[in-house]
């Protein structure tokens, strides 16, 4: 992928999957996210970019309530998934996270076999009625994670024995296995070498067909390569949100331009 393809990308309008309205996040006394409004579309890769500490990861973790695990974190405002407020009291975060999967910065396979890593989600959510179904889900997920060919002969080997890139694709396969509707990725390539990064990026592009993908990235090139929509965060504010091509070629806000041209970051 290069700039040429970027220009050619057609931005089709999709259904809105997640809508955030006036979201504010506080860590104790510090105000980490300020009045963020954003709409994330289905079957689209949305990239969150911005300098470190700008709140992009924090905001991402709000989308599947991973921030609940941090005691001092408070979230205000509405985040709607298919029109339903995910911070509603009646919502069980466990069910939410099955719908909104997450892939982390560092590959974090469990200290179990490759098979058990992938089967973990389907097992806890009760997605398979028997062993045959589970086998099927595992194979399908590993194929979708573009790692099946590499591991099909050693499904019983520990997941921690794979290379970094393989581990991250395993984690993606693990996330996909629970049949989510949205995939959140928190800098999924930051711990990987360039070849592994290319493989994962290719995979992300393929995943777009079935999921709404949100990716936080440090690398503007990566955002340009994989995403259709880009949001630029700065000091907890959502500065600009729009089609990737537009953000990178013709930003409206001077801060976005400064970041893209490398003056801040």
């Amino acid at each position: 992928m290069n700039d040429m393809t970027l220009m050619e990308k057609t931005v089709e309008t999709q259904n809105i999957k997640i809508a955030a309205k006036d979201v504010n996040v506080y860590y104790g006394d510090s105000h980490a996210i300020k009045d963020v409004n954003v709409e994330i579309e289905d079957n689209t890769v949305t990239a969150f970019i911005g300098p470190s500490g700008c709140g992009k990861s924090t905001f991402l973790r709000c989308l599947n309530r991973m921030n609940d695990t941090i005691d001092i974190c408070r979230v205000k405002g509405d985040i709607l998934l298919d029109g339903e407020d995910i911070y509603d009291k009646r919502v069980d975060p466990v069910q939410l996270r099955a719908k909104v999967g997450m892939v982390f910065q560092k590959p974090n396979p469990f200290p179990k076999s490759i098979y058990d890593n992938v089967a973990y989600g389907p097992r806890i959510h009760g997605l398979a009625r028997n062993k045959a179904e589970l086998d099927e889900i595992v194979e399908k997920s590993l194929r979708r994670g573009a790692i099946w060919d590499e591991v099909k002969d050693r499904l019983d080997a520990p997941g921690t024995g794979l290379s970094g890139g393989q581990q991250q694709r395993l984690c993606i396969a693990r996330a996909v296995a629970t049949e989510p509707e949205v995939l959140l990725m928190d800098e999924p390539c930051s711990a990987l070498d360039p070849i592994a990064t290319a493989q994962v990026e290719e995979l992300i592009d393929e995943l777009r067909s079935q999921y709404s993908v949100v990716i936080v990235t440090h690398s503007m090139q990566q955002a340009a390569r994989v995403s259709q929509k880009t949001a630029f965060f700065h000091l907890g504010n959502l500065v600009e949100f729009g089609p990737t091509g537009q953000i990178f070629t013709n930003p409206e806000d001077p801060r976005t331009e400064s970041y893209i041209t490398g003056r801040i970051g």
């Binding site: 996270r97 560092k106 200290p111 973990y120």
Partner: peptide
């Protein structure tokens, strides 16, 4: 046991007890 392990499990929609029993304890 690294927090990343727990995050990985919780991120898949596991409850805390599932995370403890199936991920933290084996680790």
């Amino acid at each position: 046991v690294p927090q990343a392990m727990r995050d990985g499990s919780l991120g898949l929609g596991a409850t805390k007890s599932e995370t403890v029993r199936q991920v933290v304890m084996p680790a």
